[in-house]
Amino acid sequence: MASVPPRRLSVRPPTPELERDRVVLRWAAVIDKIDYLSMLRLPKTPAGPSDADVRRAYRTFARAFHPDHFRAASQEVRDAAAKVFSAGAEAYGVLSEPLLRVRYLKALAGGQARPRLEDLEKATREDARAAAQPAAALAKTPGAKAHGERADKMIELGELAYAKAALEQAVHAEPGNAGLAAKLAAVEARLYAPRRGGRR
């Protein structure tokens, strides 16, 4: 409030609550369009935010927007808070689930701020299925197969970073192969520290 020019001081400052309501309405106006990282105010780094960052950001987000805080506000503000909160919870759900997260960050890098969640989930189910198969079996061409075999060996040894590199080469060798892309996504998801003891 100190930075407000003197001529405006005749206007009574709004109460913190009214100020808060306005911020919520501004968020609600754009929430359907913005990406999950901006929503939770996470930096857009190449590797994506860490698991701990995501959790911390969601916690701050929830404390700001949870509808419980807006019980006594007008219906419009309550609806806006519910809308913003559910979008943030969706963001958290995607960013904290390794397979979904990998798929989402890829889509985001490709310029899609909000791909359909339904499509992401579908792709993720395919990733999960592909992850169960050896990469060599997914590859069709001899070149990709060689990379796939190397990737399988690295996975066996627990060297996931090398496995990822090998799979990237396999995908490069066979760009149209959805199975290999899914296997790569699954390995990336494993590389990213699984959420709390890997229960999910």
């Binding site: 100020e19 919520v24 309405l25 913005i34 105010r41 419009e76």
Partner: peptide
């Protein structure tokens, strides 16, 4: 005070940006 703030419509092709503050 207490009047809903409406965002001005965005020109096509410009990605909307998240407001820079959270409600307190």
């Amino acid at each position: 005070p207490n009047r809903p703030h409406t965002e001005p419509p965005l020109p096509d092709g410009v990605a909307p940006m998240a407001p820079s503050v959270f409600p307190v």
